[in-house]
Write a protein that binds this DNA or RNA. Structure first.
Length: 587
RNA sequence: GGGGUCGUAGUUCAGCUGGUUAGAACGCCGGCCUGUCACGCCGGAGGUCGCGAGUUCGAGUCUCGUCGGCCCCGCCA
């Protein structure tokens, strides 16, 4: 661009726009950044200049007519350098940190012009997420996004420092690895050297990190990308980042404390207090009380079992459910006794949508009111078990146990938390002792709930062959406000136990050898007792940023349709690439 | 794989039970303006109503299909 004011050599930045303060008054500075906004007053032109640290106001005055003319040509998102003197403003702008000062320009250099951007670069975003993703480089210029990138950096740094301080070494593991036989769908990578053979991108470095324990590394961690070819959600991406940790000679209490300290360090970055130690809730209890394996403890409601009232009470309906092997669960909602008939009907519809046959409600207002017809003594008993008061509402579901827990659990989970202070709390807990196996309807066999290397409780081992579904595993999920923030387990380090697990999973020796060959070999060369965890880094940063989607803290995320709207990936490849890999597309 | 919801100027949206010239705000372009900071004032340009079929005298509006965004279920060891 023709620019008579340009100095012979490019202007060299001395300061960030956003870093200038009243203390810089009188200094000659050079700022480099993007034109955020111009206000052309005729003989006076104001330009807000933006860089990653913030905004500064630059003023061009008519006593330098050529310079002023150049300034009038500036448009949004032009990249410029400005030299000038810092001075106090005649009227302070209290809304921005640099509002006390401005830069009186004496030189301007346009490094690059810009097309008119598809949306205005400003907070909050004035564009749909679709458009923001397509022009992510513009979206990321927004101060809020810059802060999130920085926060993510600081969180990774804090995690590294914390774990390093506790004796953990960050060790890299392969991205090109073997397909995982159980679990999520793998991303496959064809091999050019071996047609018909494939690498897989790791769902997690699980086997490698355990191998590092066998290798004597003792304490490993890695902030590592993981890949799962599954449906995307607000809190799930095809590729995501874990803080992956593994420890030898592990003491579970110490390990919980280590991880709680890590949370303390991370949330300390945003000035949030973390209350320790975290509550520990066995899986079975979590399901009974909250109907969820990741309870949101900000919701101050708990379920109770009322099956005995069905069995011993006067209601033929409840009696029938119990006789048929069902159970009765109750949820007391304090202060909800005033709900109208219409609101109660809505709740009933919601329960039905969740698969319940019906929802029973009970109130105590001028005598008992309920959708259930039964003796007063039954209501008295329900009230006594649930601890109800006059203004309260009780919701009951009589059904198969899992169904009843699920329905009331969902009502509990989505019940609005009125108290703002309560809503803002960080409610961490450990949910421990998940079942080792769960039945797969699809495969008609038991599959690992966590993964096949998870240690069962010794006292449950005798159930392995007779009632595998009743075997508890030494697992632990870290749950924060109803979101699974991390999960891990103590691993099996004895080959004989590992063999019994594989047998219970219905795998033959040949299959296990083919699928886990090297790893079983490794376990038989002196494996230390060990265990570990993996934290969802994106989800944690999301919490730190106060956001509700991990896309807000990932620079270049994919849409829920698995597309990258900026790059257009995934994309087709030409025939030569396929030929080289020995691949042929169907149809 | 299934359900819900959205798609209209560059952007965010409005547009009624189908009706003749599709609007607003911001942005953009031009002009004026010496203290603005959501600058102001005057003027202007800008539309394949996501795409494709269908119903109808007539479709932004109704139907079907399709593509895309978001949310949820399944799935996510």
């Amino acid at each position: 661009m023709n620019n008579p004011n340009a100095t012979a050599t490019p202007l060299k930045r001395t300061d960030y726009c956003g870093a200038l303060r009243a203390a810089d008054e009188g200094r000659e500075v050079v700022l480099c950044g993007w034109v955020h906004k111009t206000r052309d007053m005729g003989h006076l032109v104001f330009v807000d200049l933006r860089d990653r640290e913030g905004l500064a106001q630059v003023v061009f005055q008519s006593d330098r007519p050529t310079l002023s003319e150049e300034a009038k040509k500036l448009r949004g998102e032009f990249v410029v350098g400005v030299r000038g003197r810092v001075r106090r403003r005649s009227s302070v702008n209290k809304d921005i940190p640099t509002g006390e000062i401005e830069v009186e320009a004496d030189a301007l250099q346009v490094f690059a012009a810009s097309k008119v951007p598809p949306f205005v670069v400003a907070d909050p975003p004035q564009a749909s997420e679709e458009l923001r993703l397509k022009y992510r480089y513009l979206d990321l210029r927004r101060p809020v996004m810059q802060r999130r990138l920085r926060l993510r950096h600081e969180a990774a740094l804090a995690a590294r420092n914390y774990l390093s301080k506790h004796g953990y070494l960050e060790i890299e593991t392969p991205i090109l690895a073997n397909p995982t036989p159980e679990g999520a769908r793998d991303f496959l990578v064809p091999s050019r050297m071996f047609h018909g053979r494939f690498y897989a991108l790791p769902q997690s470095p699980q086997q490698f990190k355990q191998t590092l324990m066998v290798a004597g590394c003792d304490r490993y961690f890695q902030i590592v990308r993981c890949f799962r070819d599954e449906a995307l959600r607000a809190d799930r991406q095809l590729e995501f980042t874990q803080i992956d940790i593994e420890t030898s000679f592990i003491d579970r209490d110490e390990f919980f404390a280590l991880n709680e300290g890590l949370m303390e360090a991370l949330f300390g970055l945003v000035g949030r207090k973390v209350e320790r130690p975290f509550r520990r809730i066995p899986y079975a209890e979590a399901m009974e009380k909250y109907g969820s394996d990741k309870p949101d403890l900000r919701v101050p409601l708990e379920m109770r079992d009322l099956t005995a009232i069905g069995r011993e009470g006067s209601s033929e309906i409840l009696k029938g459910v119990v006789a048929g092997g069902g159970e009765i669960k109750g949820l007391l909602i304090p202060g909800a006794g005033g709900l109208s008939r219409g609101q109660l009907d809505k709740l009933g519809e919601k329960a039905k949508a969740l698969g319940a046959k019906g929802l029973i409600w009970v109130k105590k207002q001028d005598g008992w009111k309920s959708s259930l017809k039964t003796a007063e003594a039954d209501f008295e008993r329900i009230w006594s078990v649930l601890g109800g008061g006059a203004a309260d509402l009780a919701l009951l579901v009589a059904d198969k146990k899992d169904a009843a827990l699920k329905v009331l659990g969902e009502i509990r989970r989505t019940w609005p938390v009125e108290d703002a202070a309560r809503r803002d709390r960080l409610e961490f807990c450990w949910v421990t002792d998940f079942p080792l196996f769960e039945w797969s309807e699809e495969e008609k066999r038991f599959v690992s709930m966590h993964h096949p290397f998870t240690m069962p409780y010794e006292e449950d081992l005798h159930l392995l062959e007779t009632s595998p579904d009743r075997v508890r595993a030494k697992t632990y999920d870290l749950v924060l406000n109803g979101v699974e923030a991390g999960g891990g387990s103590i691993r099996i380090h004895q080959m004989d136990v590992q063999r019994r697990i594989f047998k219970a999973l219905g795998l033959t020796d040949e299959e296990t050898q083919a699928k886990f060959g090297y790893f079983l070999d490794a376990l038989s060369y002196g494996a230390p007792p060990h265990g570990g965890i993996a934290h969802g880094f994106d989800r944690l940063v999301m919490f730190l940023a106060g956001e509700e989607s991990i896309r807000e803290v990932i620079p270049f995320p994919k849409t829920t349709g698995a597309l990258d709207l900026m790059t257009g990936s995934p994309s087709a490849v030409d025939q030569r690439a396929l030929d080289e890999l020995g691949l042929k597309l169907k149809g």
